[in-house]
Amino acid sequence: MPKDEPTYELIDFGDGRKLERFGAWVLDRPAPGENGPPSHPDLWKSATAQYTGGRATEGTWKPAIKKWAESSVDFPVKLAEDVDFRILLSPLPSGQIGVFPEQLGNWQWIAKQSIKTPAAKVLNLFGYTGGSTLAAAVAGAEVTHVDAAKSMVARARENAVLSGLSEAPIRWIVEDAVKFCQREVKRGNFYDAVILDPPSYGHGPKGENWSIKRDLLPLLSLCGELMAGHPKFVLLTCHTPGMGAAELSAYLSDGLFGHCGQPPECGRLNLKTSGDRKLVSGEFARWPG
């Protein structure tokens, strides 16, 4: 988050872990790939809770959630002057807490692009708790939010209410992303922009299997059809080990534009400590750059 925003802080990282502050919570969670030593080992003793295991979904919270997190944290996200939204944070069994702070720059970009395209129709796939949906909606876009998990869609709707966007033009869809896009193509529906943050692996509400290596390119081709070859903006992010920004950009180029057109902007999603140490937390590709 911005340096003048006290709500979030990356305190330290190392040995495959990261130490973060969300308001009053100081959390010790997995950070795969960070094998160097932490800079300030003494600070880790201040953790409110630790999510055990080397990766999200592979551990448990210690102490148990009920002993330290009886209520959710109200997390403000500032996009620009007088433009913001809010997200409820609470610890989930997967080790996530409802927000990815490294996405702030992308949320600001989404709002900027949405303002440039009045009444834009935006499709947000793998929408999770709604950060990208709210960034587009608060900037005036009409958004279709799709996620396979009913609980995550419910949480995203809560965040819309908290952000004063309960009456915003948002459709909330519990569905497998690929199946939804296939149906939208058959219905003849179109969108101005698409946002995707796919997992490495996943399951749809009816047991559909997802693998990013196998399924991302066909899904992007469907997205290209839904934008009729004339996208206003596209954002693709991922947190998949071994998939770099250049590879993500190539997927986006091939899936949407073939080998023609302006290449997407791409880069890493980073978090920084107060000492400017960078923790790589994902990759992005977006168009226009």
Rank of each mutant, 00 (worst) to 15 (best):
151 S>A: 14
164 G>S: 06
228 A>W: 06
135 A>P: 10
143 V>P: 06
176 D>R: 05
213 K>N: 07
156 A>H: 03
218 P>F: 00
172 W>C: 00
200 S>A: 12
181 C>A: 15
129 T>P: 00
162 L>A: 11
156 A>S: 08
172 W>H: 03
130 G>P: 04
142 E>L: 04
180 F>I: 13
142 E>Y: 02
132 S>M: 15
162 L>W: 10
168 A>L: 10
194 V>C: 07
166 S>N: 10
157 R>Y: 04
147 D>L: 12
142 E>W: 00
196 L>N: 08
235 L>H: 04
170 I>E: 02
219 L>V: 12
210 W>L: 11
175 E>R: 11
233 F>G: 02
136 A>R: 03
184 E>S: 14
161 V>F: 09
127 G>W: 02
237 T>W: 01
144 T>N: 01
130 G>Y: 05
153 V>S: 01
151 S>I: 13
188 G>R: 09
209 N>H: 13
146 V>M: 04
181 C>W: 00
233 F>M: 09
194 V>I: 14
145 H>L: 12
190 F>M: 07
236 L>F: 06
130 G>D: 05
202 G>N: 03
220 L>K: 08
145 H>D: 09
143 V>T: 12
218 P>N: 13
187 R>N: 10
211 S>A: 14
167 E>T: 13
232 K>T: 07
196 L>Y: 07
162 L>I: 00
202 G>C: 07
219 L>K: 03
159 N>L: 12
183 R>N: 14
186 K>S: 13
208 E>M: 05
147 D>K: 06
129 T>Y: 12
167 E>G: 04
198 P>L: 10
185 V>C: 02
137 A>K: 00
204 G>R: 12
233 F>W: 11
133 T>C: 07
194 V>A: 12
182 Q>F: 02
179 K>G: 02
218 P>I: 14
238 C>N: 15
229 G>W: 13
197 D>A: 10
234 V>I: 14
177 A>S: 15
228 A>Q: 15
231 P>D: 11
190 F>H: 13
174 V>E: 01
175 E>L: 01
198 P>N: 13
139 A>E: 04
226 L>D: 08
